[in-house]
Computed example of a mutant assay.
Amino acid sequence: MAVSHCVSQTRETAPRCARSLERCRSASSARKTGLETEQEQSYRRWREEERIRLEQRFLLGADCAWTRIEKSEAFYCRRNGRAFRIAQGKDKRWTLCRVEEIDDEGELLGTYQGRGDANKALKKIAYAPQLQR
């Protein structure tokens, strides 16, 4: 039975049309083509390779975007040769720290409502002259 035929049916035949429509939907969703599966696997592989590439860039000292290192909760990035860590606390606020190494506790630079706010501040902090300690 065609779906368009079901639209114009009366109340008596509506349940039959609904069942037919539901069968069509479930059959089409159950039939995942081999191409879709292959594309999904390819995308997952690409994401994992990209994650590894970013992690390696950070560890080698190159400037890079925010990335997780070794499955940690925090994100790390490097800008202007300086390493930064951002982590979300229990209060859902983000703390931004300047770090020398991954295991380093770091110097607290600020606490922010969202990652976007921290990124805006980081744009200025990363390129500001470094204070001598």
Rank of each mutant, 00 (worst) to 15 (best):
L122N: 00
I102L: 15
K124P: 02
Q130I: 03
Q88A: 00
A2T: 09
A2Y: 09
D91V: 08
A62Q: 14
F75G: 00
R51T: 01
A62C: 11
L35S: 07
D104H: 15
C77P: 10
A126Y: 06
T13D: 08
K124L: 11
S20I: 02
R19Y: 01
Y127D: 14
K124G: 05
R19L: 14
K124W: 10
I69G: 07
K123W: 03
A27P: 00
S42W: 07
A87C: 12
W46G: 10
G81L: 06
T67P: 06
A62N: 07
G114S: 15
G106E: 03
R31K: 09
C17W: 07
L108Y: 07
A128K: 15
D117L: 03
R68S: 12
E70F: 12
R23C: 08
E12K: 15
E38A: 15
S4M: 10
E73L: 12
L35P: 05
A83D: 01
W66N: 01
V99P: 10
Q88M: 03
L122S: 02
R78D: 04
L122A: 01
P15G: 11
E55L: 04
A128Q: 14
G34P: 05
R47Y: 08
K71Q: 12
L96C: 04
C24I: 02
D104N: 14
C6P: 08
A2R: 15
Y127L: 11
T13C: 06
E105P: 15
A74K: 05
A65D: 14
E22D: 07
R79C: 05
N119V: 00
K71A: 09
A74M: 06
E55K: 09
D104V: 08
S26T: 06
V3R: 07
R25W: 05
A74W: 06
L131F: 05
L60N: 13
G34L: 12
A74P: 04
S42P: 06
Q56N: 14
A128L: 13
E55V: 03
